[in-house]
């Protein structure tokens, strides 16, 4: 086979002596530099926004933290100061040695763990059924689940407290956990539904072809895929219970009072012990921060679950 020789076209020279190819390369270079500069400025703006958001969200917590190390007169300084003039641990000693504080921590953990477990145990199958069977009753149910979120908590809290008392569960963490589940369950069902939606049905069908039952496919294939989503849901359910105040106020007494109520008790009719209150609040936030850090990867995975669904 003979090869066709293409005539070589002499490169056109411009008035500057550069060929069009040179200009193209230069333009591409300029474009690339421009693009880089654009990216840099976008990144800078994003960093500024991120820092602003971080300061906005982080400052109250930092202020709380610094206040917990202030002396009594420093906590009420006019105008207020951000950093303590003199650092002290006295507030932590006061707060943690107050009667009922250690017990309230245990109660908070018990209540939050039970409430989270209850939420997951109920929300996972409910959300799976709703997303996979797509029945009209399922759609009604998922909308109805939101109704409890539309009612002011105090309207539920008082009757709930009476009901718990009448079944002999007054002043127990299990009663408060059930109450907290009424808050977290609707959110958990909605969250889990969105995570299950993101899992292709083909995965389950493949598992079924390999001999799995429907439940087996759910347990062995779907649950591991949505484990990030379960972690996110668990975190939200845990936080909902951990920080809840009103139900704890109405339903707990000697045996099951949780820490948010104890923290509020530093404000009395006769004054507010800022130092001890902030110290206990700072200590109370540690488990949640640790939990979030521990499950960070799962949470990120859960947050992005379904983000690439085609």
């Amino acid at each position: 086979m003979s090869t066709i020789q293409r005539p070589t076209i002499p490169a056109r020279k411009t008035s500057t002596g550069s060929s069009p190819a040179d200009i193209g390369r230069r333009r591409r270079g300029v474009n690339r530099e421009g693009l880089e500069a654009g990216r840099r400025s976008t990144r800078t703006i994003l960093w500024i926004l991120l820092t602003a958001a971080l300061v906005l969200y982080g400052f109250p917590f930092l202020y709380l933290l610094f206040t917990s190390f202030k002396t009594p007169i420093d906590t009420i300084a006019v105008p207020p100061t951000i950093l303590p003039k003199e650092w002290t641990m006295a507030n932590y000693v006061n707060a943690l040695s107050r009667s009922g504080v250690p017990a309230s921590f245990i109660n908070s953990v018990q209540t939050a763990v039970i409430s989270t477990a209850l939420s997951l145990v109920l929300a996972v199958p409910a959300a799976y059924g709703i997303t996979r069977y797509k029945t009209r009753s399922g759609r009604v149910f998922i909308m109805a689940a939101l109704v409890t979120r539309m009612v002011p908590p105090v309207a539920i809290g008082i009757p709930l407290a009476s009901m718990m008392a009448s079944v002999g569960l007054a002043d127990t963490p299990i009663a408060l956990s059930i109450a907290h589940t009424t808050i977290s369950l609707p959110l958990s069902i909605w969250l889990m539904s969105s995570f299950f939606e993101a899992v292709p049905k083909d995965l389950e069908e493949a598992a079924t072809v390999d001999g799995c039952s429907r439940l087996g496919a759910l347990w062995r294939v779907v649950i591991p895929v949505v484990s990030g989503g379960i972690a996110v849901t668990a975190i939200f359910a845990f936080l909902a219970s951990w920080n809840e105040f009103l139900f704890a106020l109405l339903m707990t007494a000697v045996r099951s009072q949780t820490t948010p109520v104890v923290i509020a008790n530093f404000q009395t009719q006769f004054g507010l012990d800022w130092g001890s209150m902030t110290a206990l609040a700072a200590v109370y936030s540690i488990p949640v921060i640790l939990l979030t850090l521990l499950l960070q990867r799962k949470i990120v995975a859960g947050m992005t679950l379904g983000a690439v669904k085609g």
């Binding site: 009922g100 109660n107 002043d171 127990t172 963490p173 009072q257």
Partner: peptide, 26 residues
């Protein structure tokens, strides 16, 4: 593992719940 840990935590919590941590019985 998660299920096992969750199960153990729940069991422990539920058992402990019988009396709560705040103090004596009402």
């Amino acid at each position: 593992k998660l299920a096992a840990i969750g199960g153990i935590c729940t069991a422990v919590a539920l058992v402990a719940t019988g009396c709560g941590a705040g103090g004596p019985a009402p």
